[in-house]
Amino acid sequence: MGFGQLSFDMAHLLAGGVLLLCFVLLYQRRVAAVIHALALQGVALALAVAWQGWVLGMPGLYIAALAALGAKAVAIPIGLRLLVRRLELRRAVDSAIGIGPGMVAGVALVALAVLVVLPATPGSGVLAREGLAIALSVVLLGMLMMIIRRHPIGHVAGLLSLENGLVLAAAGPRGLPLVVELATAALVLVLTAVAGFFALRLRDDVAGPGPGLLHQPYAEGDPPGKAGR
């Protein structure tokens, strides 16, 4: 199996789409856009898993894909949107180190993942190797997002993206045994984590009298003196 075959190319492209959406997540600075990108990533992941199910002839993967689609592309984004609206969270997702350096760090992490995967998988095919590298990159980027975002939604997005990476790795061309069960369990775990996280974290964030709502209307992270552009 190599480049030029449709099955390989599509799997490759869908996994790449998941990775690309990780960078889209890193790039966003609005809550609504982050949730949107998260939903898109869920769709891409579901497609990738479903395609893998078709290629490998494992109908169980369709179920995992459906679960991913329902939870990550529909349920969680809607829930997050409702939460944001009800709790009146800040609209801007600020980053601790700025967008540009965050992206640079992201590319460096991907390069690191590639450098790690290449010597660790001698003899395995190009497909397995690239799939593993992409999955590892997605996991690392999710962690990065959790570290550099200050907004609770940013943390949730990081966690979900991390989990997406794990599912991507599990549904890879080599495949894990019990992949469907594992994916579902991971999903449940993440859902619990998100719920618990919100319950704990938001109490701190929203407990104050609400100075968060009085954040500057623009120019976050810019040098002063250029308002009005």
Binding site: F3, D9, H12, G16
Partner: peptide, 11 residues
């Protein structure tokens, strides 16, 4: 169609 569909080409 030598190179096929590639993530790199997408990027």
């Amino acid at each position: 169609g030598g190179p096929g569909l590639r993530v790199s080409l997408l990027l």
